[in-house]
Design a protein around this nucleic acid. Structure first.
Lengths: 163, 163
DNA sequence: ATAATACTTTACTTTTTTGTAAGGATTTTA
DNA sequence: TAAAATCCTTACAAAAAAGTAAAGTATTAT
């Protein structure tokens, strides 16, 4: 489980466009220079972002790319999903079947369950974090399990929260 | 950002050993059959787990693998780190430098900052989840941001918690 | 001792991902 | 209408990851 190169570089390219806002266009080569990437590679990354609807392109002389929404309206989840797909494949158990036709745990897969929980958990962070947060270096504060237990106890709130 | 095949299959092999406990040995071929994997591949996965100290091997007739600690004492973080390394490379910015010698954002990299935060956040889930939790299908409940904000407000607790 | 069992290591092949190259299509400007 | 600028598409090359194969080493039972 790693952040891939395409995810990181793609995010960086999009942040360049987020910084200048939806009303400003930049060309591929401008973005490439800003990020220290090759023009063809930058082109590929922007193409992925365009197909996901995060940026728009205009061709011809004077053309370029602009971000389609403002930074506060794009989450890290939107970006990473566009660039790298979901953390857990939707049909994970039918894809990773080892040597067999079907996953040997197809009936009840505790591994798949826990990975799905992890994916949900990660998604919460990603959807809570917008490009604006990244540009402004806002850090979202998450509560550690022990902290909230303590607070709930102190506050006399019963600890029966849904996940 | 994806769970890799090695991470998933490696976890499954370790769970087989976790289920029978530290005092029971199973051979590679027994594990391979249980998980529907090839013997050589299973062998490779167990070798990785052994080098990480999560399982022990005994050679020769009657040999096999056993888990070194009981399920409650091994976390998902231990397992996934052994099989796939860290989510964010420690020297991420010096590795992903595009075409340049150094990352163009080396002085102050907001992307790296947010990815580090994500890694910390993920690590919390992974260290909170043990192999026993997976075997028993315990689900750890995490509080959503909006939920705890509401509770804190109701309880009159000031919302200044450290991450 | 020797054969059988079972792990270990190294190297190789296949597949996937990353990154590049080249020609094509579109728009603007003169 | 032609040239210049710019994005678009497809195919290819290189690198990394996944998975296999084969020969080696250690242990036990006979």
């Amino acid at each position: 489980m790693k952040i891939t190169a395409i995810e990181k570089y793609g995010l960086r390219c999009l942040l360049v466009l987020a910084k200048v806002g939806p009303d400003t266009q930049l060309s591929i080569s401008e973005i490439a220079v800003k990020e220290g990437l090759s023009v063809p590679y930058t082109s590929k990354l922007l193409s992925i972002l365009r197909k996901a609807g995060l940026v728009q392109a205009e061709r011809g002389r004077g053309g370029g790319f602009n971000i389609t929404r403002k930074a506060a309206d794009i989450t890290l989840f939107d970006v990473l999903t566009a660039l790298g797909g979901p953390l857990v494949e939707p049909h994970h158990c039918s894809r990773y079947t080892g040597n067999l036709k079907e996953c040997i745990h197809i009936d009840r897969c505790s591994v798949h369950d826990v990975l799905d929980s992890l994916a949900d958990y990660v998604q919460q962070f990603l959807t809570d974090t917008t490009l604006e947060d990244i540009l402004k270096e806002n850090k979202t504060v998450y509560l550690k399990k022990d902290d909230y237990k303590l607070i709930l106890t102190r506050a006399g709130v019963e600890n029966k929260l849904t996940g």
